[in-house]
């Protein structure tokens, strides 16, 4: 399709600017905060501590899952959610609005905006994953071959959420209502997608089947396949196929929105 070719060639032509904008985006996110760079680490650490406290002494009475303390079980999926997926859901959707000056004041390929936002968020996510790996090692859970599939799930995650970013940011540029809708749905998705609980433990097979169409669930569970469950992704071919279907639909939606809206966006912003 023509649209794919346009988007790809824009990315190739502007590749060095894309990385520079990603870098500037990271610096901007953290240079404003009082703690600066430490904030990237402090925020999730506090969150994990709060959840650990609540679930160990409060809600859950400290039960283990698959032989792992709950907090440890939670961490991989939670970090994937909090440092990348939730940011891409909301900030991905808002990125064209945020970088309005690139759209209305100079010639710039709009399709690359979600991409550099994605790179920016993923860089922070990678730093946190180093921390996660350290936590597992310190608590005596040493790396094994299953950890090697982590890049596979990261790739799935980037691919899906970058396509989502393009689709949702184009629609959000057309209408603030859409952006507000996304923001209010995000919190619900956190509880619905099995970030804090184990989807494998759902009794109803139908509900479980439906759950695995959710890409957030696929990726959070995938991260846990590496650290906790010790399952290879090809052992869950059906789930991957379901993810792939949703991903392809997302890409088609993004291309459709791009083709339809790209010339109107600057007039609206």
């Amino acid at each position: 399709m023509e649209t794919i070719r346009t988007i790809v060639s824009e990315h190739v032509e502007w590749r060095s600017q894309i990385f520079k904008l990603a870098k500037a985006d990271i610096i901007k996110t953290y240079s404003g905060a009082a703690l600066g760079w430490a904030w990237a680490l402090v925020k999730p650490t506090i969150m994990i501590f709060v959840f650990w406290f609540a679930f160990t002494y409060g809600l859950r009475h400290g039960g283990d899952i698959d032989g792992y303390p709950f907090v440890l079980w939670m961490i991989p999926g939670f970090i994937a959610w909090s440092s990348y997926m939730s940011d891409m859901l909301t900030q991905g959707a808002g990125c064209i609005r945020k970088y309005k000056f690139l759209v209305t004041k100079m010639k710039f390929p709009v399709s690359t905006i979600p991409s550099f936002i994605s790179i920016s968020k993923f860089s922070i996510h990678l730093c946190l994953m180093v921390l996660v790996v350290m936590i597992f090692i310190v608590t005596g859970h040493y790396p094994d071959v299953y950890w090697l599939q982590l890049p596979f799930y990261m790739l799935c995650m980037i691919a899906f959420f970058t396509a989502w970013g393009l689709f949702s940011s184009l629609l959000s540029a057309m209408s603030v209502d859409f952006l507000n809708l996304i923001k209010s749905v995000t919190q619900a998705l956190f509880w619905l997608s099995g970030i804090m609980w184990d989807v494998n433990k759902i009794n109803s097979p139908t509900v479980q089947f439906i759950m695995h169409f959710n890409p957030i669930t696929y990726i959070a569970t995938g991260y846990r396949n590496c650290f906790i469950y010790k399952v290879w992704f090809w052992e869950q071919g059906e789930r991957f196929a379901m993810f792939l279907i949703v991903y392809i639909v997302m890409v088609i939606l993004a291309l459709w929105a791009y083709k339809k809206l790209i010339k109107e966006i600057p007039d609206v912003l």
């Binding site: 500037a24 404003g32 690139l102």
Partner: peptide
Amino acid sequence: SSGFDMEMTGRDNIYLKGQL
């Protein structure tokens, strides 16, 4: 206001613009 990133300093904006 032509096309500046409001959160970045003037100097950083000069570099950003130049790169773009």
